[in-house]
Simulated assay, not measured.
Amino acid sequence: MSRTTDVALERNQLRVGRLLKAHGLKGALKLELYTDDPGRRFVTGAEFTLQVPEASPWHGKTITVREYRVMNGNSVVFFEGVDDRTAAESLVRAILWIDQDAEDDAEDDAWYDHQLAGLDVVRDDEVVGRLVRVDHFPAQDLLIVKAGDREVMVPFVSAIVPTVDIAAGRIVVTPPPGLFEELPGQDASEDAERDAAAASD
């Protein structure tokens, strides 16, 4: 399961989706979800802040959900005032943010960036680093972990990050071999590659 869920633009806002492409001729847009609870987030009347380039006509504006559907396995959303394909295309790639409500504190699997930064990163009950920041990408988020004198990028997915314990101040990871340490023979392999490159010069 992807952990690209409900991250903070400001301390009182959550990122919950990204508009991928226009769908049909009546203003619908396919939606990439960044929340585990779309039925609650995308109710009729829900209002979102739009993250778009400054040159976009939507910059600085909000938008309101008219209808949310799942069509052929895809999340599709209609907005008030977006009634045709041309209007929908002007919103493609916009990121949707929503004001936090009181229920968000009880939602599982949703954390703010500022809650995660600074937490110990633990593997097999041993601290292997400290979380520096979270980098957000369309496919998934990455935890940037300071481990010694280097930064390690850890995919923020449940298979590798099974536990986030804010109260205990730690994130438990089960990384694949070689993510936090060099594997035996890795140095020798790199030396051999450098020697081969030098010989060919």
Rank of each mutant, 00 (worst) to 15 (best):
D104A: 02
P57W: 11
V157K: 02
A8M: 10
D187Q: 13
D36H: 15
E182A: 14
V157D: 01
L116R: 09
D201P: 02
Q51L: 14
W111Q: 07
G27T: 00
E190R: 12
P177F: 04
F156A: 06
G45T: 15
F180A: 07
R66K: 14
I98W: 04
D101E: 07
Q13P: 01
S75Y: 06
A106W: 09
W58Y: 13
A139P: 00
D105W: 09
V121M: 06
A46Y: 10
K21L: 15
P155R: 13
L19T: 08
T35Y: 06
D6P: 00
A88K: 00
Y112P: 00
D99T: 04
I98P: 03
V7T: 13
F137H: 08
E126H: 15
K21I: 09
A159I: 09
V77E: 03
A28I: 03
L131N: 06
E67M: 12
T174G: 13
L96G: 12
Q115S: 08
R11C: 02
Y68R: 10
G27A: 00
F156N: 07
L131I: 12
D108P: 08
E107L: 14
A106N: 09
T86L: 04
N72W: 07
T35R: 05
T4Y: 05
V157E: 04
A8R: 11
E103S: 14
R40Q: 10
P162D: 15
I144F: 01
D195Q: 01
E193C: 01
L183C: 05
R130L: 03
G118Q: 09
A22L: 09
R66H: 05
E193A: 11
G185F: 00
D37Y: 04
V152M: 10
R69Y: 06
S56A: 04
H59I: 03
T4E: 12
K61R: 15
A87W: 00
A55P: 00
E181N: 13
V132Y: 03
F137Y: 11
D125C: 10
M71Y: 12
G81H: 07
T64F: 03
V161I: 14
I166Y: 06
M153T: 10
I63E: 02
V128K: 12
L14Y: 08
T163A: 11
Y34P: 03
S158M: 11
E151G: 03
T49D: 14
L179S: 04
V161L: 12
Q100V: 05
T49N: 05
R18T: 14
S75N: 13
A94R: 03
P177E: 12
Q13D: 04
A94M: 05
Q140N: 11
E103I: 05
G60E: 01
F137R: 07
G45D: 12
R130F: 04
D101F: 02
W111H: 11
K61F: 02
N74M: 10
L50M: 11
G73E: 03
L143T: 07
F180R: 06
R93P: 00
R194S: 01
D191R: 10
H59D: 04
D149F: 13
D149V: 12
K146E: 12
I166R: 06
E193Y: 05
S2N: 15
D104T: 00
S90H: 02
W97K: 03
Y34A: 11
T174H: 15
E54Q: 14
I95A: 12
R93H: 15
K26C: 09
R41H: 04
G60L: 03
R170D: 07
E182H: 11
